[in-house]
Design a protein around this nucleic acid. Sequence first.
DNA 1: ATGACTGAGCATCTCAGA
Length: 255
Amino acid sequence: MRLATWNVASIRQRAPHVAAWLAATKPDVLFLQETKCEEPAFPAMAFAGIGYQASVVGQKAYNGVAVLSRIPFTVTHRRLPALPAEDTQARYVEIEVEGMALAGLYAPNGNSGGEAGFAYKLAWMDALAARARELLARDTPLVLAGDFNVCPEAADCAPGALAPTDALLHPASRARFRTLLWLGLTDALRALHPDGPLYTFWDYQGGAYQRDLGLRIDHVLLSPTLAETLKSAAPDRAERGREHPSDHVPVLVEF
DNA sequence: ATGACTGAGCATCTCAGA
């Protein structure tokens, strides 16, 4: 299985990038985040023509996740079950493929909306952990892939790339990420590349990419039986150097 | 002192991103 995740910062702006990347890389499944449109505006035709079926969990202007797959899949969840019904933010999609649960997620940033915004980030991460716990209790092979909006360790934030008080670095945010690891999930990038920077994001401002002031916030977590078969895991840095790029690059994992 | 990012939307500014 070749599985990827990519925060595209608007699928309507990035459809050509995504289609070209799919044609060149040919992953089985690609999870997208920050598609920023409702389902009817999602450019599904751009991907159908190259063999990828889309399933979209969209909303107007903000958030939005989707999955593109060239293998058959069934959508099992379009929201996290533990969140209140009135929460309509489009941040989670879960599919079933060959007995595996594959989840694409866009965790809240947590820097906007004051204390309530940060509390929402933590509550959302708790709901994600609850879902992971549920699947693992059933021995379902599981992948969590997406923009977690957490730099897990010091090496995941270039010095000066963020203010020390940023929500992505907050001890409570990092604790929520560690909780996922303590459930037995393996951080695919770090499992194969234990040391040094492995950035997946560079800010648009201040020449962050040219100065390599990046962050590692896009992650792929694997349950134990899948982690045992892990072959490769890498961010595709070259995408950040293209014309009109997303501020995130795709992360590709092979297992 | 200067100029300094991107995208969406009931838009010529505001909000959000991170």
